[in-house]
Nucleic acid binder design. Structure first.
Lengths: 248, 248
DNA sequence: GTCGTTTCTTGATCTGGGTCAAAGTTGCGC
DNA sequence: GCGCAACTTTGACCCAGATCAAGAAACGAC
């Protein structure tokens, strides 16, 4: 399909973010063609599990649209989310054959996957792919470490404000800014998923969201539709610097 | 100093772990020589700060001996440790010019450093350095995510047991196994540093260590010298699988 | 529409770990 | 040795967030 391919090549990340974020920017056209050959799409419905921790994982890939979560579970059922995958985020680990975490689609999800063995082979031959993956992994490591501060030292209210800040900032594809400068978005997570991310219970999440609404930090329409009238106020509630700080 | 260099080249990680972990294994001798040229050692005393968050950081490097910590601090003084650097661990981020965290030596510390600009240049020319750094960064990311589960979902007692498990397992250079199969080591961290790692207060750390001792999970001589009579018991207390699970 | 299910909110109560306070221990400099 | 400082332990009390419980709201299937 010449037409489809040339479209995806020219439009960079519109169709498949990894081509832009991890590969495209510096790829020669023959490398792009080889990526095309090992690439395929997978679609999941909200709630579906992409892969279970421990399962064999013979692909790597990135999120095209939708949101997925990485979670760990203890034997007694306690769970902790350890990553939130937004469009363009990379999944999978070159050099490891089994998944380390449960990956679950929390909204309808489209992923762009590459078969692992040929991807690794291509990586060996194409140095800047490894360099790009290193950059992305370092970004993820920074995000994980920021999250350790949230989990270890912030109050429930600060945790909620931190999560809302991240969603408001990172998921630019969903966000909208109104004429009044408000930031508006739909929460892509249930209260329970938020609790799993924040190390809280869903009841505490619900209470703190109600409290933030009562205090005018956010506005809520229904259960999911959020308006942030003053982003710096939200960041202040999150315990970050007003100018954005860590999640900038 | 021909003698010194040939010693360090032949002994691999004895003198400078990065040469083994990140570079040596697959380096040609001319690459090793170029590393030698940009390499230097830095020594720190226990308690000294290696670098402050936000400071310009014109080197990368790895820990040769001793232990350092990465910490984040909020404006109001709350601090969270986000990384524990043991011998062979890598510090610094290619492509970033300022430190993201405070790096503090908690014991006397020797680091093997490389000037950043030439290291990055060498990395550009030597693909397997980027690949090795990618592997190491992915390991760190896994460790950070394991730690998110500890911070978010474990009880104080489980947190302490988890930390003791990590130290017992990872710091093989300090550990000793007695004739009876006991694991023996000296805690490299103060109660306060443990609290900062675990998202607890130092009082809670102290109480839980006392409780573990009273329950026979560990034995203590003085404040720092720990004996673990039964590692699987400790892992059980940590909430991990008895066979080692996540920190294996 | 109604029923059933899932998600969310709110209230009442409990408790693990934080806070405040005091005393004990260790080690170093002189 | 003594004195001081840093670190650690222990106790008493408190509170943020967990737990238990009951409804309310949203959404689909029929």
């Amino acid at each position: 399909m010449l037409n489809e391919r040339s479209l995806s090549v020219s439009q960079e990340c519109a169709e498949c973010p990894i081509r832009h974020r991890a590969v495209c920017a510096r790829c020669e056209s023959d490398e792009l063609e080889r990526l095309e050959e090992i690439k395929y799409y997978r679609k999941f419905e909200a709630g579906q599990t992409v892969i279970w921790s421990g399962d064999r994982m013979d692909f790597v890939g990135s999120v095209v649209s939708g949101i997925a979560t990485l979670t760990q579970t203890m034997e007694d059922g306690r769970t902790q989310m350890v990553g939130l995958l937004l469009p363009s985020d990379f999944v999978g680990r070159p050099g490891r054959s089994n998944a380390a975490y449960d990956v679950v689609a929390t909204t309808d999800l489209v992923m762009c996957c590459f078969r692992k063995a040929p991807f690794e082979e291509l990586m060996r031959q194409t140095p800047h792919i490894a360099q790009r993956l290193l950059e992305m992994t370092l970004d993820e490591l920074d995000a994980a470490r920021e999250w350790m501060l949230v989990l270890g030292r912030k109050t429930a209210r600060e945790k909620i404000a931190s999560l809302l800040s991240i969603i408001a900032r990172r998921d630019a594809s969903i966000n909208m800014t109104t004429a009044h400068g408000n930031i508006v978005f739909d929460l892509p997570l249930t209260r329970e998923a938020m609790a799993d991310y924040l190390g809280l219970t869903l009841e505490t999440v619900s209470r703190q969201i109600s409290a933030l609404r009562k205090d005018g930090v956010i506005e809520l329409e229904g259960k999911r539709h959020v308006t942030v009238p003053d982003m710096s106020r939200l960041l202040e509630e999150a315990g970050d610097d007003a100018d954005g700080g860590v999640f900038a």
